[in-house]
């Protein structure tokens, strides 16, 4: 849609600093309102509108931690797509398989961290195998790669159903991750003047921290290392990268390993916070799709922004309009496509 995006990009550069300053101001005001909403003791009328402060802040926190999980899944998806033009619709299956493997390993060894490591390692290997034996044969044919990934997801879902049946599993987290964190956020003041502080599960905070660490790690890998340089060059112009003597197939294999491994990692981490069951693959595939459509293909920052938007929309929708929650996600996607078809951080091609 080069016709449509032309005016917006030119007006942006013509508007220059003033426009940016205006947006900065809007952002500051929004941040100030947010800080006040989170830390102030709410007056009654606000409690009446937004159910209760506890519900509101919990929805925000749940949204942010869910965004961390979505980011882990979607960052692999977006990297793989950005570099190889490969829409890997089996990405949700990778998530679910990682969760099952994490469950088995944790159950047999008793070490949760071992389960997390196994989820990452096994899926990274599977990712390389998929890239080398399946997708490499269909290189340059986007549609067939996507169709093949659909076929793989069907077979994988059915085989996982055969092995683990239809039951719901919960990966047990170690004791040091159990318990709740008391946050310095006052949700209410009792009649005797004692403040009630918000408590929040420690595990979810750890998930968020892990997502942030991995996100920063990915960003550093992409922007500060040689492999990252190759990946970025490949995203921009694959043929040119190949012509400069880089073994693109090795780069592809690395990206597929990291992407699939992250999906497996997210599977174990998410399976500990939520649960592992058939159908989760579709849920996380949808999340990955929407996150990268909104955030922009091939961009880690975009995946983070998209994940944050979708995670918050989902949780706030769940609290305030449960039977129309998904519409909010949908609206975000449609608005993004209407205003900026390449996604928030995506580059026009």
């Amino acid at each position: 849609m080069s016709l449509l995006e032309q005016p917006s990009s030119s007006s942006l550069s013509a508007g220059g600093m003033t426009r940016r300053q205006a947006w900065g101001l809007v952002g500051l005001v929004a941040a100030a309102v947010m800080v006040w909403l989170v830390f102030a003791v709410w007056p009654d009328w606000l409690n009446a509108i937004l159910i209760s402060k506890k519900a509101f802040v919990s929805a925000i926190l749940n949204g942010i931690t869910l965004a961390g999980l979505y980011f882990l899944v979607a960052s692999g998806f977006t990297l793989i797509f950005g570099l190889m033009r490969n829409v890997n619709l089996a990405h949700g299956s990778l998530y679910l398989l990682g969760a099952y493997i994490g469950y088995e390993v944790t159950n047999h060894t008793g070490y949760w961290l071992l389960g997390v490591a196994a989820g990452f390692a096994v899926l990274a290997i599977i990712g390389v195998v998929m890239q080398v034996f399946v997708f490499r044969r269909l290189e340059g044919d986007d549609l067939r790669q996507t169709l093949v990934s659909i076929g793989i997801s069907i077979v994988a879902a059915d085989l996982m159903l055969a092995v683990w049946a239809g039951g719901t599993y919960q990966i047990t987290t170690p004791e040091w991750l159990d318990g709740a964190l008391t946050l310095p956020i006052i949700t209410a003041v009792r009649s005797n003047g004692v403040s009630v502080f918000l408590t929040y599960p420690l595990y979810r905070v750890v998930v968020l921290a892990a997502a942030i660490v991995i996100g920063v790690g990915l960003w550093l890998m992409l922007n500060r290392t040689r492999v990252g340089m190759m990946i970025r060059a490949g995203v921009d112009d694959r043929a040119m990268l190949q012509a400069s003597g880089v073994n693109v197939h090795a780069v592809f294999a690395v990206v597929f390993a990291v992407g699939a491994g992250l999906a497996g990692f997210a599977g174990v981490v998410g399976g500990s916070a939520l649960s592992v069951a058939p159908g989760e693959d579709v849920r996380y595939l949808l999340a990955s799709l929407v996150v990268v459509i909104v955030g922009g293909m091939g961009s880690i920052t975009g995946a983070a922004i998209g994940a944050l938007l979708i995670g918050l929309a989902e949780q706030i929708g769940l609290v305030y309009f449960p039977t129309y929650g998904i519409v909010l996600t949908f609206v975000i996607m449609v608005v993004t496509l209407a205003v900026r078809p390449q996604g928030i951080m995506g580059k026009a091609r």
Partner: peptide, 9 residues
């Protein structure tokens, strides 16, 4: 991708 997202949603 978009149609799959719409169908799933």
């Amino acid at each position: 991708m978009i149609t799959l997202a719409i169908a799933t949603a």
